[in-house]
Amino acid sequence: MSLFFLMCSERSGSNFVSKLLNGHSNICSPSTKHIINPVARNLFRYERLNKPSNWNELLCDMNELMSVRFSVWKKTFSIDDLHELASPGDIKTLLQNIFLEEAKANGKQHVFIKENQVYEFLPFLLVHFPESKYLYQVRDPRDMALSWKKNPDHRGGIVMAAKQWKKDQQQSMKNYYLLKNQNKAHFVKYEALTKNNKEEVKKIIKFLGLPFDESVFKFHEDELTKENADMQKAWSNLSLGVIKNNSQKYASELSFEEISIVEKICYFEMKHLEYPIETDFKSLDLITEQVINDFHRCEIEKLDYSPSEGVVGNMHAKAKLYQR
Rank of each mutant, 00 (worst) to 15 (best):
L303W: 01
Q248V: 11
K92D: 09
G157W: 00
K108N: 04
N15A: 10
R142Y: 06
M315K: 10
A40P: 00
L210C: 08
V311W: 00
L240G: 09
E120D: 15
Q117K: 12
V159E: 00
W235S: 09
P130S: 08
P307Y: 04
E263K: 02
E278G: 10
E274D: 15
S308T: 11
S67A: 12
G241L: 02
D285P: 05
T194M: 09
E278T: 15
K133M: 07
N228R: 04
D222K: 08
N183D: 15
Y177A: 10
V159Y: 01
S147P: 04
I259K: 05
R155I: 09
V39I: 11
R45F: 06
W55M: 05
K133V: 06
W148L: 01
N37R: 14
S236W: 05
K92R: 14
Y119A: 07
F124G: 04
Q96Y: 15
K174D: 14
H296V: 08
Y134K: 04
T225H: 04
Q109G: 06
I36P: 04
F217V: 06
T288S: 15
I259H: 05
H272I: 12
N42T: 07
L193T: 00
S31V: 06
K149R: 10
P38M: 03
L122R: 07
F217S: 07
D213Q: 08
D143Q: 05
P30Q: 03
S255W: 11
Q164M: 11
S18T: 03
F121M: 05
S29C: 07
H128D: 08
G241I: 04
I79S: 11
S172W: 04
L273A: 10
D294L: 14
E257P: 08
T194Q: 07
F217P: 02
K206L: 13
V72C: 13
S67Y: 03
S252A: 15
W55S: 01
E131R: 11
F121N: 01
F4D: 02
L286K: 14
E131V: 10
F77K: 02
L59E: 03
R139N: 03
K202Y: 12
L95Q: 02
I35C: 10
E227K: 12
C60G: 10
H34T: 07
D294V: 12
I259T: 15
K203F: 10
A86L: 07
N183W: 08
D153W: 01
N237D: 14
F121R: 03
Y267S: 10
E299V: 11
F16T: 00
N293R: 12
E309Y: 12
D168R: 02
D143I: 02
K92L: 10
C8I: 08
K233P: 07
S147G: 09
L59Y: 00
L178R: 12
W55E: 03
H83K: 15
E263I: 04
E199R: 14
N42C: 06
T76Q: 13
K320V: 02
A234Y: 01
L85C: 04
N22E: 09
I27M: 06
E278L: 15
K133R: 14
